[in-house]
Design a protein around this nucleic acid. Structure first.
Lengths: 210, 210
DNA sequence: CGCTTATGGATACTGATACTATCCATCACA
DNA sequence: TGTGATGGATAGTATCAGTATCCATAAGCG
């Protein structure tokens, strides 16, 4: 398959494919001569994955690169590979909250995690995000939402178990790691759009006459 | 309060505040003379909200503007105002999937919505996103995750009910609309980081020795 | 009153991101 | 043999989210 066919097969413009090649998101094709390379099914699948992450899940290209690198590093123990993938796909956000708000939020989140029996490394970026979010919610006067932290955690635990079960049925290790990545990222847009639909439909019903 | 104090109170640099004023995210201060304006508590709160949306939830500035406009338009029925806010905060994504994949996904999603008894307008952007996501998941060979759509919907319904209850306790209408916005957006980063933590802790446990 | 600093408002510049466009020397194939 | 595609390199573009600079005016201090 040459680049033009790859482009037609995936509906990604040739210059964009070249850009991904340059950036190292897509592995080089096999060169048969200095200016003739051939691409295979692997490239088609990789390209589709890239597009889903970039377009649908709006993951920055640089981050997609890290994620894909973690997928390709299959010379380490599985849990290590998955850990890396996980780190690569958790965005790090700037700190927003005030010192005090963050301190209070940290306590609350730590307690939640203990109560849940979760084992979380203290440097996990998701932990920082959670703390910042709780702090922001309090600062914005939404303390009641924060009161539902446990209820959120309940619901989240429920589908996380399911997801991990689903992913575990994958026969090969490569597929497993890839499923973790896809499941984590596209799962998020899935949940988010379901939530918006549910909100719309419940709230339309609830406030029909106000 | 002058702009410098506003800046100190919120830790937002003065040029950034000026930028938000220019862009119409932040209402103008009251002019006491041609180059002297005073800002109040309203500005502090608005600025904090803007920062939480922009920095924490990574909402584009242009979209934040729309969201805030929908909050300020309180001359329409409540459900209409909330609908507008909702539309403003649902991102529209480019179409990615192939024609066939989208057709199949549309059927599946429509059935899900019927089964759930949700009332959803056919043009809701979240609906399009959901369809694209399901199509992408299938294309990427993650059909088993798609099989859990109902389980996801269950979990999502659960916390949506909670959220709407929480928000309904707000006495004034302005606060209610604002809570809907904050709850929807920051709720999402809350859920997402909880999910990542849960995944990490469950998966670390599950794959410890592989 | 004078002097330094801050302010409001306008305009220009910057750095990052994600592509697009152009060139050119091959190369495939009709 | 010539027309179009290809690989690789380099340059250009659009958008976004601020930053920086200017300037005339105003406030606060001694």
């Amino acid at each position: 398959m040459r680049i033009g066919e790859l482009s037609r097969a995936t509906e990604v413009p040739v210059p964009t494919i070249k850009y991904y090649l340059r950036e190292g998101l897509l592995p080089q094709g096999e060169l048969s001569s200095p200016n003739q390379a051939s691409y295979g099914d692997r490239h088609v699948r990789r390209l589709r994955l890239i597009r889903a992450l970039v377009e649908l899940a709006q993951v920055p290209v640089a981050q997609v690169k890290e994620i894909l690198e973690s997928l390709d590093a299959d010379d380490v123990p599985l849990h290590e590979q998955i850990g890396r993938a996980h780190r690569a796909l958790t965005p790090t956000r700037k700190q927003t909250a005030s010192e005090e708000a963050r301190a209070a939020a940290t306590t609350q989140v730590t307690e939640l995690i203990t109560r849940r029996g979760w084992s979380v490394e203290p440097e996990a970026p998701a932990l920082a995000t959670l703390i910042e979010t709780v702090a922001a919610l309090r600062t914005l006067g939404q303390d009641d939402l924060v009161g539902f932290l446990d209820a959120y955690a309940d619901a989240v635990e429920r589908f996380t178990e399911l997801e991990i079960d689903a992913v575990t049925t994958n026969p090969t290790r490569d597929q497993l790691a890839e499923s973790v990545v896809i499941g984590t990222i596209l799962g998020e847009t899935l949940i988010s759009s379901l939530r918006l639909l549910a909100q719309e439909s419940i709230s339309a019903h609830r406030w029909k006459n106000r």
